[in-house]
Nucleic acid binder design. Structure first.
Lengths: 110, 110
DNA sequence: GTATCATATGATAATACCATCATGTGTCAA
DNA sequence: TTGACACATGATGGTATTATCATATGATAC
């Protein structure tokens, strides 16, 4: 006799929902977004990112760690520096699309 | 003598950054995302959304209010019911794109 | 080695956010 | 006009997130 049954479709949906939520949470922070926007212009090291975002070194390192753990950025060591870049083109596109969306909303005074 | 000067470019950037952060914050919640995913299938009223998301009426109403205030969804009254729908096609596309991104990541075991 | 540079990391206090409860408002049916 | 239905809203306690401080690690220059 079966007591519990798992609907694969729902399971997948819930897993996806979870992943989607986590993904958006990564983007839902001003410091992290600022860093990501800076990285849209290309790879940079921590000090460089600090300069371009006007954020403290500790904060930038912290948030880069968060972004790195979730594979949103990739890192490369060079001597005592660490260079970071967007992990893939998707991130760039996703952020770009949202920016376009907001710009369009702005135009229509919505 | 000028004490403060405002760089228009930076101002715009900060405003945009702010708007972008707010936008992603709207999406960075499991209940709200669940509702938005349900609405991708088309307009529905509160009770319908509750059924499809398995969320309480209060929670759904609460989050719909949040989404409505930010123009992510639009509403239409019909008798004692209120029907909600995605405000525009962009939201649909943006969520769809993120879903694709996650699916692709999944495929590559990243 | 020692100092310094570049970055990373643990702890913490303040704040923001969330889901729930209790209740309010408006609509329709009888 | 009373009751039930559909939804909205204010208050609240619990939890999560955030930025910062202090400090640690690891690489290079001297």
């Amino acid at each position: 006799m079966m007591v519990l049954s798992y609907d694969t479709a729902i399971m997948k949906t819930n897993t996806t929902l979870d992943a989607l939520t986590s993904f958006y949470k990564l983007l839902a922070n001003e410091s992290r977004l600022s860093i990501l926007l800076a990285l849209r212009d290309g790879e940079d090291n921590v000090a460089g990112i600090c300069g371009r975002t006007a954020l403290s070194q500790t904060l930038v390192s912290h948030q880069l760690a968060v972004l790195h753990r979730s594979d949103v950025v990739r890192s490369r060591k060079d001597g005592r520096r660490t260079f970071y870049a967007l992990a893939d083109k998707h991130i760039d596109i996703i952020v770009g699309f949202a920016l376009d969306h907001l710009a369009e909303k702005e135009l229509h005074h919505e």
